[in-house]
Simulated assay, not measured.
Amino acid sequence: MSAGCGRRRRFGASWTGPGSDRGSATAWSLGLIAVLCVVFGVVLALGHAVVIRHRAAGGADLAALAAADHWAEGTAGACARAERVAEASGARLVRCAVVGDVSDVTAASGRGPFTAKVRARAGPGGPGAPGPSPGDTPGAGEP
């Protein structure tokens, strides 16, 4: 056999040498997939945190309204009602105080690092309470 027969190889070019980029698309693809998985996990965690926060807020609001509605039963009765309402809405009552006819409750939802506590107050509207007066109707007093 002569030196020129058999496999031909170009001088200066190497298929597996240091300048080769064979397999680099696989490495880049794996890196991109890993980054996308991390981003997806962070988005899921943030979504979970928002759901827990809304559950705690809804539980606190409803518990405060229930306690304010039953203030005449005393603090124990009003807070017992608030606790039942909070549990029914997926939250747990952390604190409950009833002063007169105004209730002040704190409800929590979630476990571990995904725990949210929300405070809510409820009571009757007074003379300085915002909102429309009974005589205020749209267009009233206009010719």
Rank of each mutant, 00 (worst) to 15 (best):
M1R: 09
T115E: 09
A108D: 06
A3L: 12
C79I: 06
A13C: 13
V85P: 05
T26S: 10
R119E: 10
C37I: 10
R119W: 02
F11G: 11
P113H: 13
P18D: 13
A129I: 03
S29V: 14
L62S: 07
A107R: 03
R121F: 05
R55D: 07
C5W: 12
A57Q: 11
I52W: 01
G17C: 06
R8H: 13
R84N: 15
R8G: 14
A34M: 06
H48E: 12
G77I: 08
D61Q: 07
A27M: 11
P138D: 12
S2F: 10
V39T: 13
G17Q: 05
G126I: 04
G128P: 05
L93E: 03
V43N: 06
V94M: 07
G141C: 08
S14P: 04
S14F: 09
R111D: 12
A80L: 09
A80M: 03
G123C: 00
R95Y: 06
A78K: 02
P124L: 05
P138C: 05
G12M: 00
P18S: 14
C96D: 03
G100R: 04
V102D: 08
V38M: 13
R10E: 10
V39D: 07
S103V: 02
A120W: 01
A49C: 10
W28M: 14
G19H: 08
G41K: 09
A25K: 02
T26F: 11
A140D: 06
V98I: 07
L32D: 00
L93C: 03
R95C: 01
A108H: 01
A78W: 06
P18Y: 07
A86F: 06
R92N: 12
D21P: 02
A122H: 05
R95N: 14
A78H: 01
G100H: 03
D61M: 04
S14V: 09
A25F: 03
V85W: 07
I52Y: 00
A72V: 11
S103L: 02
P132I: 10
G135H: 14
V85C: 04
G19A: 14
A45L: 15
C79M: 01
R9Y: 02
